[in-house]
């Protein structure tokens, strides 16, 4: 390191010497580097502010108004919308639907995705074809999937009806019974989303340390112990990533529900929080109230995400 007049004028520090090769302190970074970093970050930060944080702030502001979406003006009404939601008898059903749909889609699509990834990580004939087949639905639009599965679940002419008829079972009316309707949209979304969890887990499996598994096998560990004690810990970062992204994707599912059930049957049979935002804003014209539900959804997601991060962080430190 070449001494400069500035560095030579600094008084010697007490305490242990800094390790050789340690990164320079922030205050020591050349001005040009800061400028470059700012230039590189600025476009993305600007986009985030314009397209994410400004709408977020706008949405929160609207949640305190009585805005009818067709009206040119909105009036401040304090917490009235929040009180209305709290006392809304349908809010409980919507929250329950959201919870069931999210837990089922996150849990099942991750479990199935991992199982398929492990299976297709083996040397099997035709595995590339099967991998492609599993991933393909993920790139199809939700609306198209919804329309296709309308025919699958059609109680009069659908494929499920045909299968049930062959074994002499009466097919449930998926479109008129809330429980079955929720099952239908959940199953449809899992089918569509499975390719995503599968391909991420497959990539993680291919990057894992095979020697650890071999060592455990030589030490006599059972297959189950090797799975739970060797493989799963290695996949923890991937599981963490998937749990957040699949959760966020599941909570915002709209197209499949809109195409297949329009949030029904019987009112709120398959209405989730995001669908209720749409319904209140665009069907009932109560945009202020819709903004309130969107804000509540945001707060719920915020809490869940923070809890997820803390739990995963603790788990990683333990490993």
């Amino acid at each position: 390191m070449t001494a400069t007049p500035q560095s030579s004028s600094v008084a010697p520090r007490s305490g242990p010497p800094e390790p050789v090769g340690a990164p320079p302190k922030r205050s020591g970074r050349p001005y040009g580097e800061w400028l470059l970093a700012a230039l590189l970050l600025l476009p993305n930060l600007a986009l985030l502010v314009i397209f994410t944080y400004r709408p977020l702030a706008d949405n929160i502001r609207l949640s305190f108004t009585d805005w009818n979406i067709s009206a040119p003006v909105a009036h401040y009404i304090g917490f009235d919308n929040y009180k209305t939601w709290w006392h809304d008898p349908n809010a409980h059903e919507v929250l329950k639907n959201t919870l069931i749909f999210t837990v089922a889609t996150v849990g099942i699509s991750m479990a199935l995705g991992l199982a398929l990834a492990i299976l297709l990580d083996q040397q099997l004939r035709g595995r590339n074809l099967v991998r492609s087949a599993i991933f393909a639905p993920f790139v199809i639009s939700g609306a198209a999937v919804g329309i296709a599965f309308q025919f699958v679940f059609d109680p009069n002419f659908g494929m499920i009806r045909d299968l049930f008829d062959r074994v002499g079972i009466t097919v449930p009316d998926f479109y008129q019974r809330p429980g079955w309707a929720l099952f239908m949209v959940t199953a449809t979304y899992i089918w569509k989303n499975l390719g995503y969890t599968f391909v991420i887990y497959l990539a993680a499996l291919q990057g894992r340390r095979a020697d650890l598994d071999e060592a455990a096998e030589i030490d006599g560990a059972s297959a189950w112990r090797r799975f739970t004690k060797v493989l799963l810990p290695q996949l923890r970062p991937t599981t963490f990533f998937l749990s957040i992204t699949v959760l966020l994707n599941s909570v915002q599912v709209f197209d499949i529900i809109n195409v297949m059930t329009r949030g029904g049957p019987q009112g709120y049979g398959t209405t989730t929080l995001v669908y209720q935002v749409y319904r209140e804003t665009f069907v009932n014209s109560r945009a202020g109230y819709g903004a309130t539900i969107a804000t509540i959804m945001f707060l719920i997601l915020l809490v869940i995400t923070v809890v997820q991060v803390r739990v995963m962080d603790r788990g990683m430190r333990r490993d």
């Binding site: 709408p55 040119p72 909105a74 969107a294 945001f298 997601l301």
Partner: peptide, 25 residues
């Protein structure tokens, strides 16, 4: 997480516009 949540949670309502006072088209 918060950024992602914010984006999805507010997306629909934000599409509706601002509804500001006197904002007639």
């Amino acid at each position: 997480g918060v950024a992602g949540g914010a984006a999805l949670a507010t997306g629909l309502a934000a599409c509706a516009g601002t509804g500001s006072e006197g904002g007639s088209s």
